[in-house]
Amino acid sequence: MAIEVQLPSQLRPFVGGAAKVSVEATSVGGLIEALATQHAGLRDRLLEPSGELRRFVRIFVNEEDIRFLQDEKTALKAGDTVAIVPAIAGG
């Protein structure tokens, strides 16, 4: 099912500049994998070489951090919104 993913400005160049994309997935892990496969360059930004999610990137499902849900195993259902929020340090 199609899940809307909100992207931070750092990642938008990898999806042609869009602020959000739609991805077919039933879990957060599946969604990240699909994103990384479909958009060259995103894999390195989102995942460690080991395949783990990078620690300076937060993933929220409907405003809740997946670390306080079931991490990458968090199930997704129609209408869920996923947001990728990285650490930024501009001042």
Binding site: Q10, D44, R45, R54, R55, F56, R58, A87, A89, G90
Partner: peptide
Amino acid sequence: CVFPEPTPSELAPS
């Protein structure tokens, strides 16, 4: 708690 580790400099586009 939010960002346990700093972004490595090669991945900090800033």
